[in-house]
C-alpha cells in the first residue's frame, strides 16, 4: 500500500513536469530559430523532454529495491 501510493505520487509529479515542459510558456523559450546538433531547437527539445519523461516513468514504475516492494513480493 505504502509503495503504490508513493509510486502514484511520483507519477503525478512526472505528469506535472511534463505538463509544464510541454506547454506555453516554457515551450516558447525553445520556440526560436536555433539549432541543436543540427536539429531545429524546438524539435530537439520536444523529443529530448519526451524521452526524458519516458525514462523517468520507467524508472518510477520498474525500480526495484524499495523495501515495501520486496515485502510485497515476499508476501505474494
Amino acid at each position: 500500500m505504502q509503495r503504490s501510493t508513493l509510486t502514484g505520487q511520483r507519477l503525478v509529479a512526472v505528469f506535472l513536469i511534463g505538463f509544464v515542459l510541454f506547454n506555453y510558456p516554457v515551450l516558447s523559450l525553445f520556440d526560436r530559430t536555433a539549432t541543436l546538433f543540427g536539429l531545429p531547437l524546438v524539435f530537439a527539445y520536444l523529443f529530448l523532454v519526451w524521452a526524458g519523461l519516458i525514462l523517468l516513468m520507467a524508472w518510477v514504475v520498474e525500480r526495484r529495491g524499495d523495501r515495501a516492494e520486496r515485502l510485497d513480493r515476499a508476501g505474494g
Partner: peptide, 20 residues
C-alpha cells in the same frame, strides 16, 4: 510542422496518470 506532436504528447502525459 511540429504541430503533429500534441496528439502523442497528450497520451504520454495521461499514461503517467495511468496508475490512478
Amino acid at each position: 510542422g511540429v504541430g503533429f506532436l500534441p496528439i502523442y504528447l497528450g497520451p504520454t502525459l495521461v499514461m503517467t496518470l495511468g496508475g490512478f
